[in-house]
Design a protein around this nucleic acid. Structure first.
Length: 585
RNA sequence: GCGCCCGUAGCUCAGCUGGAUAGAGCGUCGGCCUCCGGAGCCGAAGGUCAGAGGUUCGAAUCCUCUCGGGCGCGCCA
């Protein structure tokens, strides 16, 4: 609908250009938008205000010229000039009713668009280190990233979802050591668990798996493990102590034993994470291993490409990338003094791989605490001759849980964080996913657990789902009365939907394709959530004011066609957010 | 100290590629159940859009500064 008006406007502007009223090449700024106030009609354009200066005319004079140049359209009932020079369009009632027809005809694809043009976009999200269970912070990234991917697909992009697995590096070594030490405890060794180790209960579970599978094959006397280690905190340095422990574990277990423990930790954690996400409605197209980049030489090749391009130098025994030449605040180390590539080096290789795999656009969803990392990655892409705009980083702010009006305290350090699984078990996947995307991602989120669990109208997810269930209930009522819905008769009689509540509901319904396009363009799933609330509200009001199951069969079928279109819209919207649309509640 | 994000109704937040009288939910107060599910609906009160300048025909929206809050500034990931 909006596109139709935009086309009419463009034709009018083109005509004025031909007549010499407007200079060439200035029409781009003119836009058609929904009127906020019903008294301003349905749509409005600021074309005359924006172009008045270029035309050398007063805005209202230009507005008159534009209106005179507009082609006729059966969908437009009235065009008027208002205020400082706005042109307001009022649509013919039939124009709105097309939305009902379109919704029922398109079904699950109602609202989907082609703005993406079939371009390939990769959305990488969550990518939490497989060193512990997902917590509620990851949950927000999961809900946001998955909904965003759904939205982009609905907007005509070819979407690939990926999880980057940080399976190389020290964090994984710490997990392996933690598992091994808990295993030694199970064997009966008097272990002093290190301060920097992973404290969570899940580590015991992995250790128990190891003990069950391999018996005491990896048992070593504690005295031998602890011999001459630098002191742990609080007396010593916990990180130095941990590094020594890692080296000791490698030495005592040998390459095979160490690899076994390391791999088991990774596999168990990844499996846990994968199942957590699946239960949360999130599925990936691929899980990309950091270690694979190291092993197949991709990291080395990325570093060499930077070197060949002349953006690398040596200092203090390390290899540096000249990031400051590409907008970053300082240069960054690629290869450490000890010969090990940094996380940054593998991340450069990883993003290079994304480009090489043919993704025209890359979206990374990160926790907001990583924002300082964006400039260096963009710098690296620029240095590799890749337009940095192809990488889009979306930062997701933290979520704070509230229960009984009190903030739920969390601390990763002590292992006292609320896991995504616990959240899911407490409030359910539907409520969790809806609440997570109710706010724009860049806003801190206050997550009210009590409200998420509430089965009342205050709870927005129930409110929306209830509208869907209510339509289903009406259809059941229809059947109980021995009646059936005749869609064709209903569509033919749409013109009889003249109640104010019907006009309002139809207009909201007709906005859906615009909502999908806008939410995808703005990377803003919360727009979908807000729209659904509004649509549900219009529906509930209509429901309370106008009976659907009337004796007049044509009118009844027209009303049912309308509410079935509403049901389809709600189902499609909830699907984008990963929330179910129940038939009864 | 430097950088990024945020500051809109009592609370939680939309609106931010500039547009007409700043919106919603909750909460508060007052109403509505012989009727398709009351898990619903209607009404009222409630605002210096943190503050000050600037750009513009027009600023919650763009720019600058100040104040307040969060985050980041490793050869960690």
């Amino acid at each position: 609908m909006k596109a139709h008006l935009q086309q009419l406007l463009d034709e009018a502007l083109a005509r004025l250009r031909d007549e010499g009223v407007l200079p060439d090449g200035v029409a781009a700024a003119a836009a058609v938008e929904r009127a906020r106030d019903a008294r301003h009609g349905d749509f409005a354009t600021n074309a005359a205000l924006v172009l008045a200066k270029a035309a050398g005319l007063h805005p209202r004079e230009l507005a008159e010229r534009i209106v005179a140049a507009l082609p006729e359209s059966p969908r437009v009932a009235a065009v008027e000039i208002a205020g400082p020079g706005f042109i307001n369009f009022r649509l013919a009632p039939e124009a709105w009713l097309e939305a009902v027809r379109a919704a029922l005809a398109a079904g699950e694809r109602w609202g989907h668009g082609t703005a993406g043009g079939g371009r390939r976009v990769q959305v990488e999200f969550v990518s939490a280190n497989p060193t512990g269970p997902l917590h509620v912070g990851h949950g927000r990234g999961a809900a946001y990233g998955d909904s965003l991917a759904n939205l982009l697909a609905a907007a005509g992009w070819r979407v690939h979802r990926e999880y980057y697995v940080n399976d190389a590096g020290r964090q994984m070594d710490i997990l392996a050591v933690s598992v091994w030490l808990r295993y030694l405890e199970l064997c009966g060794e008097p272990v002093a668990f290190p301060d920097a180790g992973y404290q969570g209960d899940y580590v015991y579970d992995i250790a128990a798996d190891l003990h069950r599978a391999d018996g005491e094959a990896h048992r070593r006397p504690w005295a031998e493990v602890a011999r001459e280690l630098p002191p742990d905190a609080p007396a010593g340095d916990r990180e130095r102590h941990m590094d020594a422990l890692i080296a000791r574990a490698r030495e005592l277990l040998g390459p095979e034993g160490w690899a076994r423990v390391h791999r088991l930790g990774l596999e168990v954690m990844l499996d846990l994470i994968r199942r957590d996400l699946e239960a949360f409605g999130v599925r990936y197209d691929s899980w990309f291993s950091e270690r694979s980049l190291v092993e197949d030489g991709a990291v080395g090749r990325a570093v060499e490409r930077l070197r060949a391009a002349g953006h690398v130098y040596e200092r203090d025994g390390a290899l540096w990338f000249r990031a400051s030449a590409f907008g970053d605040e300082k240069d960054r180390v690629l290869v450490r003094e000890n010969g090990q590539p940094t996380y940054f080096a593998s991340d450069v290789a990883y993003h290079l791989s994304k480009v090489e795999r043919g993704f025209e656009h890359m979206i990374d969803v990160w926790g907001a605490d990583h924002h300082g990392y964006v400039p260096r990655l963009r710098a690296a892409l620029a240095a590799l001759g890749i337009e940095p705009e192809r990488l889009e980083v979306r930062l997701v702010q933290f979520a704070v849980l509230y229960r009984g009006g009190e903030k739920v305290q969390m601390s990763t350090r002590s292992g006292e964080f609320v896991t995504l699984r616990e959240l899911r078990e407490e409030v359910g996947t539907d409520a969790a996913r809806f609440f997570y995307v109710l706010r724009s991602a860049e806003q801190h989120l206050d997550f009210d657990l009590d409200l998420a669990k509430a089965r009342t109208a205050d709870n927005p997810v129930y409110y929306v789902q209830y509208a869907h269930a209510r339509v289903c209930s009406v259809m059941r009522q229809l059947a109980e009365r021995g009646l059936a819905h005749d869609r064709e008769r209903g569509l033919a009689a749409l013109g009889r939907l003249t109640e104010p509540h019907e006009e309002r509901l139809v207009r909201t319904l007709a906005r859906w394709p615009e909502v999908v396009e806008s939410a995808a363009a703005a990377r803003a799933p919360h727009q979908v959530a807000h729209y659904l609330r509004e649509l549900a509200n219009d529906f509930h009001v209509y429901y309370g004011a106008v009976p659907f199951l009337v004796d007049d069969a044509a009118l009844r079928d027209a009303r049912l066609a309308l509410i079935l279109a509403v049901r389809q819209t709600i189902a499609n919207g909830l699907a984008l957010l990963g929330v179910s649309a129940p038939e009864r509640m």
